[in-house]
């Protein structure tokens, strides 16, 4: 009697497992499919954005080559360099701002602390680029909207408001026991020394997270970049370039190159994102400790 019931319970479980795995496989395919399609398209020999058949008839590497050699209309290598420079500097600046603000808000008590946190929350409710046009005018008034200073303008845009995104970093600092700070102060540290010698070494996960997220954002933002660059094609970032490739006048020649370009920038970002995944998951439940 007992044997039969355990056997059928097991059978039910196996059946459930099989069904669920099939379901997962189907869903996984749906999710991965567009990615596969882009990769296929980047190797497609036929031009244009219309396809009569699903799979490419011929494969080629021309699209990739074209990206780097055909710089007359859309200078991909230059855009890449622009974006790289902007990403590095805005990442440095952002990380400094975010960590400073998060540390002060987590560890120190001062009169403007609560008002600051409330202000950050309220500012976050405004549509992100409502102020975009205004920022453009301000930058123009200061003279940052022409020529190579555009890159500086973009760096400032991406990192300027960084200190408003202190929440995750602050959450992490909050989980480090305050007793360690106190022990360090008794041992003779000034608060700055506590920050540099004790807190930062213990915060590797959150530092990496902040650096990586602020590095990624200039690559994927195109609204701000478009507004500030306007027609200065030599200052374009990669995001604008890819967008332009899909515009009516370019799409026939550049559609497959768009796919190639998309693959090229997706690879490093994907790698970075996979590294970040760990911290992303823990972000809500309390941070990973080193």
């Amino acid at each position: 009697m007992k044997k039969e019931t355990t056997k059928s319970a097991k059978a039910i479980r196996t059946r459930n497992n099989v069904l669920i795995h099939i379901l997962l496989a189907v869903l996984a395919f749906i999710w991965v499919f567009p990615v596969l399609w882009v990769i296929m398209t980047s190797f497609r020999a036929e031009k244009g954005s219309y396809v009569s058949t699903f799979f490419p008839k011929a494969f080629t590497l021309d699209n990739y080559i074209k990206l780097f050699t055909d710089t007359t209309i859309l200078n991909f290598p230059k855009m890449f360099m622009n974006t790289l420079v902007i990403a590095i500097f805005s990442c440095l600046l952002s990380t400094f701002f975010v960590l400073s603000a998060a540390y002060c808000l987590s560890r120190m008590r001062f009169k403007m602390r609560k008002p600051y946190m409330n202000m950050a929350m309220i500012l976050g409710l405004f549509p992100g680029f409502m102020s975009m046009v205004a920022v453009y005018f301000i930058l123009k008034a200061v003279g940052l909207t022409e020529g190579s200073l555009i890159r500086l303008a973009l760096i400032l845009c991406y990192s300027g408001g960084a200190a408003l995104g202190f929440q995750i970093a602050k959450g992490f600092f909050d989980t480090t026991p305050y007793a360690i700070d106190e022990a360090a102060m008794i041992d003779g540290c000034t608060r700055w020394q506590v920050f540099t010698k004790i807190t930062l070494p213990l915060s590797k996960p959150i530092i990496i997270y902040t650096i990586l997220t602020s590095f990624i954002s200039p690559w994927v933002d195109f609204i701000f970049a478009k507004v500030i660059c306007r027609a200065n094609a030599d200052q374009y970032t990669v995001a604008i370039g890819l967008w332009k490739m899909l515009e009516k006048e370019y799409i026939d020649n550049w559609y497959t190159c768009f796919a190639a370009g998309a693959v090229l920038i997706s690879i490093p970002i994907a790698i970075l994102f996979l590294k970040l995944q760990k911290y992303y998951v823990n972000g809500m439940t309390g941070a990973v400790k080193g």
Binding site: A179, A183, I186
Partner: peptide, 20 residues
Amino acid sequence: VEPKDRDIAMVFQSYALYPH
């Protein structure tokens, strides 16, 4: 006077050792 200038030492309940 700052803690570091009081010439005192403290053992905490959680020990508060520097993990790194």
